[in-house]
């Protein structure tokens, strides 16, 4: 029985890898942009306004991102169900040699990140949780992203939630990036060495970069009087 390519597990794995790549690209961009908060209010507000001004093109990028997220989740859940079914009984003593916390919990980490992203969108992007953010404007009449972030991180519980979300993202990235490179077939010994390094660097960049913002706000390094 010949399978349609879309029903094959390898196809599913490759889709997860490639959509993951799109998201890694987004995270690098998003982190870089947000780090402008350390440059100052004007820098980050200019950047935010710039993004808005792209207009339709931004929506193309966003659509690609949304499609990636949907496909990534759809195929991951499909594979997870298949993999669970393939191992109905585990061992009495569960012992591992090479697998890691991250590799064993990719799905749950992914779902945690999804939950976090949904909150994050409601929090800052659509400002549903804090409708007052809509009215923040800076001296040039732009949306004051800087003060929105500062205000948003005044609540330590929200900050802790963000930090946990970022840590989850870190674990997910650490295993995901390396897996992605392996899955799409870059596997020479030197490629493996670089992929490992690459995964580590991006993970550190994203975790430190994104995690530093709520911490800095909380300790008053950013937005402090």
């Amino acid at each position: 029985m010949v399978l349609a390519i879309t029903r094959s597990v390898i196809f599913a794995k490759v889709v997860v890898a490639l959509t993951g790549l799109v998201m890694v690209g987004f995270i690098i961009g998003h982190t870089s942009g947000n780090l402008l908060i350390f440059v100052g209010q004007d820098a980050i507000n200019t950047y935010a306004q710039g993004l808005k001004d792209i207009g339709a093109a931004l929506w193309v990028v966003r659509s690609a991102l949304i499609i990636s997220v949907v496909l990534h989740i759809y195929y991951t859940l499909k594979l997870t169900a298949l993999n669970k079914a393939a191992k109905p009984i585990g061992y009495k003593k569960t012992t591992y040699k090479r697998s890691t916390f991250a590799s064993r919990n990719m799905t749950i980490l992914g779902l945690t990140i999804l939950f976090f992203i949904i909150y994050h969108l409601l929090h800052y992007t659509f400002q549903v949780t804090h409708p007052q953010f809509k009215d923040l404007q800076d001296s040039l009449g732009r949306h004051d992203v800087y003060n929105m972030i500062v205000a948003g991180f005044q609540n330590p519980i929200i900050c802790i939630f963000y930090i946990l979300g970022v840590l989850g993202l870190g674990y997910h990235l650490r295993h995901g990036i390396q897996s992605m490179i392996h899955t799409i077939g870059l596997n020479s010994d030197s490629a493996k060495k670089y992929s490992n390094l690459f995964a580590k660097l991006i993970t550190i960049f994203a975790v430190v970069g994104l995690g530093s913002i709520p911490i800095s706000v909380l300790i008053g390094l950013v937005g402090g009087k």
Partner: peptide, 24 residues
């Protein structure tokens, strides 16, 4: 194609890069 699809039809799972296989 034939071997990969037979493998899948036998009910085996798919690789998520735990690398446990290599060490076992």
């Amino acid at each position: 194609i034939a071997m990969v699809e037979q493998m899948q039809n036998e009910g085996f799972g798919s690789c998520t890069n735990h690398y446990e296989c290599e060490s076992a």
